Amino acid sequence: MQPRLPDYVEKPWLDPKARPSVQVDSVTKKFGDFIAVNDVSLKIYRGELFCLLGGSGCGKTTLLRMLAGFETPSGGRVLIDGQDVTNVPPYDRPVNMMFQSYALFPHMSVEQNIGYGLKHEKMSKAEVKDRIREMLELVQLGDFARRKPHQLSGGQRQRVALARSLAKKPKLLLLDEPLGALDKKLREQTQFELMNIQYKVGVTFIVVTHDQEEAMTLSTRIAVMDRGQIMQVGAPTDIYEYPDNRFTADFIGSINLFDGIVTGIDNGHVTVTVEGIDTPMTISHTGSLQLGRPVSVAVRPEKVVIGRDAPAERGSNALRGQVLDLGYFGDRSLYRVKLPSGRIVLVSHQNIRRARDNERQVDWDDTVWLSWSPDSALVLTE
């Protein structure tokens, strides 16, 4: 499931005339000789739930802190609704930030925590009370208004922090690993709650996370980061199905990568010869390639068909191997198949029907055939 976009958002990133809500223009951040963020440019549009995704030390949190105003760029600029806020302090930006720790005041009740940021707003007591009630209803915590943080579950504390962040109605909400403190089951449930809340309020969310599944579930678009740079920006389906480079392909989910040489180009297909594999691979490809160019063939494990019998057409993209390991996860099984060359190929098989005792399933040490269609693989040049 992907987040619903508010009615006024119709994939504006595809419209060259659309005006971004947040623009990061050639931003660099150095700490001494270390470059944490390296010449990053981004356009994020009103109503998006945008994720900055990457491993530890990739620069995503530093970039978020520059958006918040807690760090000043060494170069470049940050614009919000067309206004240059690069040197504007955090308290003067139309931005709020929700931290991973939630930072709730333990001595205050839920409603006091939510209303804390409204003290310095030009609002009457009645208006503040109405805004707190509105936020409590938004996060479905009306019955918990008088409780203290220690009397709440992790998911409830997360919602209090979110309500407090939204109470001042910022144009932009920044969330640093917002679900990192929750256990797996609660995190999955809270993802959908967060998406629904964002849809209702229509505020632009920018979320920092290292969790691939979380980014794929939450976001309208993802920016994959590595060593301070943006490797690819796109919708979750584009990032997963059409990675631009080896890093993105390898970082998002599991993938099989075969390094080879282009040995044939014909009618929308390329042929790649891979060392250690007897038959060339055939891949659908419409881009420009040259014979002899080194490339990588990328195949997701779920695109590979596994069976004990050889495929009807034993041509390209049909490999024989032996099951080295087998993991059963209920809804799917994961196989590690060893080819004669010693290469390991990952295969994910969906368990769509119940196994019966008298049915012969693929098992450890079985000799198996792997195959995939030319449309199921990609050619990567970077």
Score class of each variant (00 low, 15 high):
85 V>P: 02
286 T>A: 05
164 R>C: 06
78 V>R: 02
38 N>M: 01
336 R>Q: 11
108 M>G: 00
66 M>A: 13
42 L>M: 15
331 D>R: 08
89 P>W: 08
185 K>F: 01
7 D>S: 07
92 D>R: 14
295 V>Q: 09
134 E>G: 10
163 A>S: 09
127 E>Q: 14
149 P>D: 08
20 P>D: 06
83 Q>Y: 11
176 D>F: 04
330 G>D: 11
358 N>S: 06
11 K>I: 02
340 P>K: 12
22 V>M: 12
337 V>E: 10
64 L>E: 00
114 I>R: 11
286 T>H: 13
189 Q>M: 07
233 V>A: 04
72 T>N: 13
195 M>I: 13
165 S>H: 12
108 M>I: 04
300 R>M: 04
215 A>Q: 01
170 P>S: 09
196 N>I: 02
146 R>Q: 09
291 L>Q: 01
283 I>Q: 04
116 Y>E: 12
263 T>V: 15
354 R>K: 14
111 E>V: 08
17 K>Q: 12
61 T>C: 07
172 L>A: 10
33 D>T: 10
308 R>K: 15
63 L>R: 02
187 R>C: 12
184 K>R: 15
60 K>V: 03
219 S>L: 01
157 R>A: 07
356 R>G: 10
106 P>Y: 12
296 S>N: 08
99 F>M: 06
309 D>G: 07
307 G>E: 13
123 M>Y: 06
251 F>K: 05
214 E>V: 07
366 D>Y: 04
353 R>C: 00
308 R>I: 09
